[in-house]
Amino acid sequence: MLINNFLLLGAVLFCIGVYGVIARKNAVMVLMSIELILNSVNINLLAFSMLHGNVDGNTFALYIIAVAAAEVGVGLAMVLLIYRNRKSISLDELSEMKG
């Protein structure tokens, strides 16, 4: 099997995720798009791990899964907090950082 199969799949998923991060208004949806990006990275890591015949890629894929779980936990907690404070999780209404 061509390694490019997997790498291109990863690239496509990554770009779809990037589009989601940019285009979505709902904070939960942005978090979902970030999950897409993280998964595409994992596919790449595992593909290279198999190509080179060592397990480092597997190890880091596991680490990424763990970090993603932490990220979702904190991210959703923040979304909840934001929701509680302003009764909305639309990112368009969050513009405290406006210069």
Partner: peptide
Amino acid sequence: LRPLQSGKVNQYGALLF
């Protein structure tokens, strides 16, 4: 550059990527 600093996360994301 000020218009770029809209304070919107998505736009920052777009710029970053």
